[in-house]
Design a protein around this nucleic acid. Structure first.
Lengths: 337, 337
DNA sequence: AGTGAGCATTAAATCGTTATCTTTGAATCC
DNA sequence: GGATTCAAAGATAACGATTTAATGCTCACT
């Protein structure tokens, strides 16, 4: 178990001061007028013995950890997993590592996690926040940490945000259903005050209101136990036999909603038309395939990481806060009559 | 932007030495006979001002970072995403954070990532390794870092491993197909030398051999571009019209295999029976539902994190290397005649 | 009174860097 | 020829903790 080399060992071996080596390592050689000959000698030796500076010591000194904290609702949800994947790739390309965690939409857990990230001195945060963490995030921001929010916005937090046009997405989807002749359209959503869920609901409500149609809304408490969702959806469908179409507010609501629908022996689209918010492999491959409102995952993650990297690169200029709202696509499949 | 408190600030405010505070913080109060009165006073003040020790400084001094490096093939694959999720929960409960990355089954990328993790001083590693990183991992181990492998084993690496009975799983699955009267059974796998894929192939081969049946094997190069896989599978199925059943070696091969099958207009199970290795929401919900060899994800992640935490807690005792082979379940669904 | 033991606390070294000053010797200027 | 500038490198103080060895101080014992 050979111990790792330190900059001191290198300095001794080469009979040079640590200062000089540090300068060379950090690209200050020119500026500090270190002779070319010496620069060469040091670099050669370093490459030879494979010396790597201790990042902890470096971070302690500089205050930068080159780590980004990523907080999503649930990393095992394909939407977030895909976003995480793209953010990861991009971050690594730019020399940043990712510390991640799943919030479970749990306010207290999220507060703890924010504190953990803070203790770990992450340089920046990417957060899909639950409700109720406004103060914590504002504290982060005012202490100088760059924060980018995505998926759901917090109005009381003044920072960059990347999201989609939730209102327009459901509004269009419902109008599409209406144009196809559906008259009793249900909406299954989370009982959550998160901005994205509220906007989706409003889109649904507006579209119905314009056609003087009744609302049929089912709000389900957040749970990562599929059975909970299945039960709620089943009960809702049993109670509302008049429904001829239903829009699910998230992909996992839809996935488990499908289970409920199949359990009840309902046929899609004859007994019930279905649209899901967020795409999922299941929707493409089930038979019939399920119409979905698809988010531009690649652009979302691209914009998110770009905004954060920009902030990290030039922390000085207090640029205007950016709010990016991207468009979704209604991917029409066989689940509509 | 108030700057963070350091142990020094606390010491000054309380007129106590940093040493004392450090002892109290680290539970050495008794052992060092710090008076109860002082312990109380310090703890109260610390809670009041919300002081948290700087983990970087602490890590630098102690050499422990309380971070675990998690390397999977692709975090956006539900199998790995679910495992990652459970490992994350468990790790956080034990005071460890997760640094993660996707290897893409790319040997060079993985080597880089191992080095990154090393530079970041992660305390332990959980790795689903690609081929060709044996030396790097052995270097890690001999430098004292605990490593647990899972999903695929590296015979030349002598460390804990958690996997499943790949051979038995495919062997049983094929026998099940044979018992149901299938006679031309194909196997779609990765062209990979990874242990788990080799074992799965051997299970397939043995079962066929015992019944004097011909092999129909398609090896597909690793790619995270679905279209690549679809094309390969389509070509294979076109070429092998005699097939009446096919076993896919991984869940994403099966997911994209299904796309190919549907594109070709083949009916499951009448034209072709299908079994997938690893479960997936798609398989439960597609119509007909797809039979799958399901891995005990909860146990796998539980064992993995347990093994690692044990090693982290008692690094001294060089326990015997553990190899855990868990059983899978053949979840029979409608994709068989 | 002198020695030693026990108690409660602390000074100082250390971890591996980076960054701010100094230092040294040679060259240039007036 | 002494003062000044400059090139090249080094000494050293942070960064914020942990940990080893040391410091007074009281008390008991011979």
């Amino acid at each position: 178990m050979k111990k790792k080399l330190s900059i001191n060992d290198i300095a001794k071996s080469l009979n040079v001061s640590v200062t000089t080596i540090s300068f060379i390592l950090n690209g200050h050689a020119e500026e500090k007028r270190i002779s070319d000959e010496l620069v060469q000698r040091v670099q050669k030796y370093i490459a030879e013995v494979g010396y790597k500076p201790n990042s902890l010591a470096r971070s302690l000194r500089t205050g930068k950890s080159h780590t980004i904290g990523l907080m999503v609702e649930d990393i095992s949800n394909p939407f977030f997993a895909n976003i995480a994947r793209m953010i990861e790739d991009n971050a690594y390309k730019n020399g940043y590592k990712i510390l991640y965690c799943s919030t479970d939409n749990d306010t207290e857990k999220t507060k703890d996690l924010i504190q953990m990230f803070q203790e770990r001195h992450v340089d920046g945060y990417i957060i899909a926040p639950p409700e109720g963490v406004e103060t914590e995030i504002n504290t982060l921001i005012s202490s100088g940490s760059p924060v980018v929010l995505f998926d759901r916005n917090l109005p009381e937090v003044n920072t960059d945000y990347v999201g989609i046009d939730n209102y327009g997405s459901t509004y269009n989807a419902i109008n599409h259903l209406i144009s196809r002749g559906y008259r009793n359209i249900g909406f299954v959503t989370l009982s959550s005050l998160q901005s994205q869920m509220q906007e989706r609901m409003q889109g649904y409500e507006s579209a119905l209101a314009e056609h003087n149609m009744y609302q049929h809304i089912k709000e389900i408490p957040y749970s990562n136990e599929p059975d909970d969702i299945i039960k709620h959806v089943s009960a809702f469908l049993m109670r509302k036999k008049e429904l001829d179409a239903v829009l699910f507010g998230t992909n996992y609501l839809a996935v488990n909603g499908l289970r409920a629908i199949y359990n009840l022996g309902l046929k899609i689209p004859d007994d019930l038309a279905v649209i899901a918010f967020d795409d999922h492999d299941v929707f493409q491959l089930s038979n019939p395939s399920i119409t979905a409102i698809t988010q531009p995952i690649k652009e979302i993650s691209g914009e998110v990481i770009n905004l954060l990297l920009n902030k990290l690169k030039s922390p000085l200029k207090q640029k205007k806060v950016q709010t990016l709202i991207l468009d979704t696509t209604l991917q029409i499949r066989k689940s509509l009559r």
